[in-house]
Computed example of a mutant assay.
Amino acid sequence: MDLTMIALAIIAMVAVITVLLSGVKIVQPYEQAIYMRLGKFVRVLNQGLNFVCPLINQVVKLDLRTEVLDVPKQEVITKDNSPVAVDAVIYIKVTDPRNAFFEVTNYRLATVNLAQTTLRSIIGEMELDQILSSRERINVSLRDILDENTDKWGVKIEAVEIREVDPAKKVKDSMEDQTSAERKRRAAILEADGQKRAAILEAEGKKKSMILEAEGKRQSMILEAEGQRLATILEGQGEAQKLRIMSVGAAAMDSKAMSVLSMQTLQEVGKGESTKFFFPMELTRLVEGISDYVGTASRIPDRPVSDMSDLERAVGTADDILGPIPTPEEIHEETAKVDKQVREDMEDVDEVLSKKPKQ
């Protein structure tokens, strides 16, 4: 009898403890709980230790952390009738546990299905090239639409990312052919542009070469002409000085000396190898001078010797006839001026050639 009473007491104590424990609910820091009693919503239980009515309570805990939902791959027809397989990833977070529990049966499944239909709608309104190049715009549009529709469920869409866009095999092959053709087109354009630039540079080089060659010829002709001019001046002045010296020397000679020089000239002419000789028209006077010198005409008196005053009265002074004779220093200075002018002209040509022509 005593054992039976002890057993019943133990059972009663266990039952009481069980009942009391059913009224104790512990909510984790990342959770909130929905507390319902007899089918009626009472309140939302926050993190920590919570006491509810034992036995007749129902508590559903909801995770408030960000969840990652995978949108399965689906085939979508684009605006330009290109089949493409698209999948995505959604990042969601429960902001209102009460709505997430009471407004939708399964907010995860509902969000994924809504993302599938919305993604199909957005992709269907775009062409394939836009889809491949505008993923960010698709992500933003999909996130805004989903966030607006899931707000009444107490769920916030934090981000949406298109994970893969996979066109059909035939479309891929066409895109590869298009890419290859585009690369070939760019290569042909670059090659043609390179040939064009090479031809321009070659033409510019030939132009500069011809200009430099022409300028060199011009400067050479200028220098040659200047040299010939100076040579002619110096040669003429030297010849004039020679004649002046000869005239001064001949002024003191009498007719006999002239006759001796004439005989020496005839002797030099006779030594030549030529069989023909040309004599001046005054040959008779030359013969008369020679005959006077040898004594056949001794009655003819000697001609008076001319002096410098007689020559100057007849033809003028030597300086008036010959003009100023340049000294070596003056000739060197004139040549230096010509060289300086040539260098300045060459610098002007280089400055003109250094300027690139407008393309």
Rank of each mutant, 00 (worst) to 15 (best):
M1C: 08
M1S: 12
L3D: 05
I11K: 02
A12R: 09
M13A: 10
A15W: 10
V16Y: 12
V19I: 15
L21D: 02
A33V: 04
F41N: 09
R43Q: 11
L45P: 01
N50K: 06
N57S: 12
N57V: 06
V60H: 06
K61V: 08
T66N: 03
P72S: 03
K73G: 12
Q74M: 11
V76H: 09
T78H: 07
S82A: 10
A88V: 05
T95R: 13
P97Q: 02
R98E: 13
N99F: 08
A100W: 08
A100M: 06
E103V: 02
N106K: 06
N106L: 01
L114W: 00
L114N: 04
A115V: 01
Q116I: 04
T118H: 02
G124F: 06
E125D: 11
E127K: 06
L128Y: 03
D129I: 01
D129P: 00
S133T: 13
I138T: 06
V140G: 00
L142D: 03
D144I: 07
D151K: 13
K156A: 05
K156Q: 10
A159C: 02
D166R: 15
A168V: 12
K172H: 03
D177R: 06
Q178F: 11
T179R: 14
L190T: 02
E191P: 00
G194L: 04
K196Y: 05
K196D: 07
A198C: 00
M210S: 13
L223W: 04
Q228Y: 09
L234S: 14
L243D: 07
M246R: 15
S247V: 14
G249C: 03
A252F: 08
K256M: 08
M258F: 14
V260S: 05
L266A: 15
G270D: 11
K271R: 15
K271S: 13
G272H: 15
G272N: 15
F277S: 06
F278N: 08
L283K: 13
L286R: 12
D292M: 05
S298L: 03
S298E: 09
I300N: 07
P301Y: 01
A314F: 15
G316T: 12
I321G: 11
P326C: 05
K358L: 14
